[in-house]
Design a protein around this nucleic acid. Structure first.
Lengths: 211, 211
DNA sequence: TAGATTGTTAATCGATTAACAATC
DNA sequence: TAGATTGTTAATCGATTAACAATC
């Protein structure tokens, strides 16, 4: 099974980091093997779903034993691309943008922000957490120098589409969209929408439904 | 149709904020009506899906015209609970926790963080953005004083379950979980998992699949 | 061997999409 | 009226769940 070409359902991809975190904690506790049934019980997911998700990636367990904790961590991390370094530009150094620049945790998951851009003149030339901030018009030039093709969108909503268009023009391949706007892109561009407010909507709704 | 008791699919709930942002931008541009077909075209979603999503909530459009932009904004905001104020406690004042405390945007979406807790003694008594930070052992007392029942979880992964258990013990009704850990909770507790790393996993995978 | 586990295949469930009737 | 739009109903699609065979 060539797992690098297999199309995984998005829900399955989102669950893999759970198993990864679980395995990491298990390793800390000194557990050398983990079984899918145990994972399922501990994180409240169907056992067959865990098994199915793990069958997508290139890892085999031992009957009556489970998976080697160490191998499982390694395989999931590699499969998800967390062991490589993906370079990215960040657009919009506001509160959220600034927080992402501060977050060294991203590097652990394979993402390195190497430059940030903003329209505020006073930010140009400064840096946050050793990441340089440039005025937006230098983007194309630096993009060509570095070959970066992932852009992180943390601008105000009324500039979201405009800045996304700029990225598309500059031949970016992926946009990580933190705005609550659904941006329009050609379908060869990968977009991940991460609007925390959408989660608030779901949370409030479920709270209201509860007895 | 009593929309307060209808069970909406989670994907639909997550799309509503898109329509809301779209309507807000349309209002800024001076458009007094928006049609579901136009929304669909502009944000790249099926028109029938937009219509279906909007049919869940208590809003009616006019044939040949669409929805009143103003009414649509009001109805979605109210339905999603963004017009009320939901009070919350935040647990774990690290980079991410600190960023959330700074983010006044949350208030616009109906969430107000009124206190934060941490195990670092040196943080107790300080505040961020006028929100007081307490040592963790004061949580129960303040919870009883304030009646807060939403907890935001931004602690390190090896403390995630422990702190979640503490919240459950203290009778919290909802946990907004920003850790990559899938926490175990009784099923009367509402959990929203917002791990940005899961989105990275999907993004890297889709990038690899692309031609 | 008995029992626990992996991992596949089939059945079910629910969301999305398509078709279309109703309306202005 | 013709055409654009809402909004519902039926068909399709895909993910989850259940059942179970294989393995140690």
């Amino acid at each position: 099974m060539d797992s690098t070409q297999l199309h995984l359902p998005e829900p399955a991809l989102r669950r893999l980091p759970w198993y990864l975190s679980y395995a990491k904690l298990a390793l800390e506790r000194g557990e050398t093997t983990v079984s899918s049934t145990q994972i399922a019980k501990d994180i409240g997911v169907e056992a067959s779903m865990v098994a199915k998700d793990l069958s997508y990636i290139n890892v085999t367990g031992k009957t009556r034993v489970g998976y080697s904790t160490f191998t499982l961590i390694e395989v999931i991390e590699t499969f998800l691309g967390f062991t490589e370094t993906h370079k990215a530009f960040l657009f919009g150094v506001g509160r959220l943008g600034g927080a992402l620049l501060q977050d060294n945790g991203l590097r652990q998951f394979g993402l390195e922000i190497i430059a940030a851009f903003d329209v505020k003149f006073e930010l140009a030339g400064t840096n946050i957490n050793h990441i340089p901030i440039h005025y937006i018009d230098r983007m194309n030039e630096l993009r060509q120098q570095t070959g970066v093709d992932i852009g992180i969108l943390t601008v105000p909503i009324n500039q979201a589409q405009e800045v996304a268009d700029m990225m598309i023009q500059a031949d970016f391949k992926a946009i990580w969209n933190f705005t609550p706007i659904r941006i329009r892109v050609p379908n060869n561009i990968v977009v991940q929408n991460t609007s925390i407010y959408a989660h608030l909507a779901v949370m409030f709704n479920r709270l209201r439904m509860n007895p």
